[in-house]
Design a protein around this nucleic acid. Structure first.
Length: 174
DNA sequence: TAAGTGCGTCGTT
DNA sequence: AACGACGCACTTA
């Protein structure tokens, strides 16, 4: 039922050119639904042929593009497009909302994120939820570190995590 | 003290 | 029932 509804609901997929390659954004009628890192082997975003992009989504895409470019430059995001986080479980959405509030240049540990959602012991589950983040960079899961300022993991590849943090001036131990 | 082992704990598959 | 993008306490060298 959930899957059916998602299948039925139209999704627009649009590319974003950056100095780090072509990201791909997906929009549902509710907002930005996912953001993908550049693919290794030139798999391009498939735009709906001849289908006009709704004005509203075009506007969201502008916001996404600016937000992405800013973060890739280590700058704060001025305004966000609406985010459609409905693909996540309630727990995941709780985690993602915490991540979204981590300011540029700041970091939290997985444990601190767990504290924020009210259950310290859920640390490992928090790590999992970070890995499931559908909108990396804008939802800055790269700002979540392991304890003692250690790098921790990153589903998009640790190189990305290191690069993003370096551009924000975050110092790592190790 | 740096590096390695074991285990609690919790959401997801 | 098993597995993590963890964190601690506790060995070892």
């Amino acid at each position: 039922m959930n899957a059916e509804r998602e299948r039925k609901e139209q999704i627009w997929e649009l590319p974003i050119q950056t100095r780090d390659g072509e990201f791909v954004a997906q929009y549902s009628p509710k907002g930005l639904r996912s953001l993908n890192f550049p693919r290794e082997q030139g798999r391009q975003a498939h735009l709906p042929k001849g289908a006009a992009i709704p004005l509203e989504i075009h506007g969201w895409h502008e916001q996404t593009t600016k937000a992405l470019v800013n973060t890739l430059s280590g700058l704060p995001i001025k305004d966000f497009p609406p985010l459609d986080l409905s693909s996540g479980t309630e727990f995941q959405q709780r985690v993602w909302r915490v991540l979204k509030n981590i300011a540029c240049g700041k970091t939290l540990s997985y444990g601190e994120v767990a504290d924020e959602i009210g259950d310290r012991k859920a640390v490992r589950a928090v790590g999992r939820a970070c890995g499931a983040n559908p909108i990396p960079v804008l939802i800055p899961c790269h700002r979540v570190l392991a304890s003692k300022q250690k790098l921790g993991g990153f589903s998009g590849g640790l190189d990305w995590k290191r690069k993003l943090l370096a551009r924000e001036g975050v110092l790592l131990l190790e």
